[in-house]
Computed example of a mutant assay.
Amino acid sequence: MTEDRLGVWSELLGKMSITFSEGMVETDLNGEKLITPYSVLACDRTSVVLRDDSEEGAWAAEVLGLSTFSKIHFDGDDSYWVFSEPGAIKEYFRRVTDTD
C-alpha cells in the first residue's frame, strides 16, 4: 500500500468508540455521540444478537429496508466484528484501555 493510500485509510478507520451498558449503547465518532437503546434477543458462546430499539432504527427498517438486528461475532475476550448494512462491510472492533 502506498503512503498516500495508507494516510487516507488511517483518516477513515479506527475513529469510533463504542460503550455498552445495560440496555444502552453509546457510539462516539469524531466527537459525534449517539446513544441508542437496545435489547438482547439471543446469544451463544461466540455471538449475540441485538435489536435497535430506537425510533431511528424503526425508521431505517421501514423506510430504507434495513434490519433493526445486529449480530456481534466475538473473536476472543477483547475483540469482535459485525457485518454492517448498508455497504456490506465487515467492521472489526477491539477493547481499548486508558493506556492504549
Rank of each mutant, 00 (worst) to 15 (best):
W9V: 14
F74P: 00
E56L: 09
K15A: 11
V25R: 01
L12V: 13
H73C: 07
M1R: 15
K90D: 10
C43K: 15
K15S: 11
T97I: 04
V63Q: 11
V49D: 03
E32C: 06
P37L: 05
Y38Q: 04
S47Y: 01
D75R: 11
I35Y: 04
A61S: 14
F74K: 02
E22T: 01
F74G: 02
L66V: 08
D53T: 06
A61P: 01
F69H: 11
F83N: 15
D77H: 08
L41C: 01
A88F: 07
A60P: 00
F20Y: 14
G87S: 02
F20H: 12
R51A: 14
K15N: 11
D53G: 06
M24C: 07
F69I: 10
M16F: 06
L12G: 07
E62Q: 14
G7F: 03
S79K: 05
W9A: 13
I35C: 04
S67F: 05
V63R: 10
L29F: 11
G57W: 03
A61D: 11
V25I: 14
E62Y: 04
Y92L: 09
G14F: 04
E32S: 14
D75C: 06
L34G: 09
T2S: 13
S10L: 06
Y38E: 04
S17K: 15
L29M: 11
C43N: 15
C43L: 14
D53C: 02
E26M: 09
E56Q: 13
D75G: 07
K15I: 11
F69Y: 08
D4G: 06
I89D: 07
H73K: 04
T97M: 05
D4F: 05
V63P: 01
S84R: 12
I89R: 08
E3A: 14
S47M: 03
S54P: 00
M24A: 10
S17I: 08
V48W: 01
V48Q: 02
L66I: 13
D78W: 05
T36A: 06
G31V: 05
M1G: 15
N30K: 12
S67T: 15
G76L: 05
P86G: 04
N30Y: 07
A58C: 07
G31M: 03
T27E: 12
E85T: 08
E91M: 09
E22N: 06
T19L: 01
V48R: 04
E32P: 01
V8A: 11
W9Q: 13
F20C: 09
V8G: 04
E55L: 04
K33V: 13
K71L: 00
D53P: 00
P86K: 02
L34D: 13
G23V: 00
V8E: 12
D98W: 05
S54R: 04
D75H: 09
W59R: 15
M24K: 10
E56K: 09
G57T: 08
I35G: 07
I89A: 08
V63K: 14
D75V: 08
E55T: 11
L41T: 02
K15W: 10
D100T: 15
S39K: 10
E55M: 03
T68H: 06
I35M: 05
D100P: 00
R51H: 14
K90I: 13
D78I: 08
V82M: 06
D75M: 09
S70R: 10
E26V: 12
L12K: 12
E32H: 12
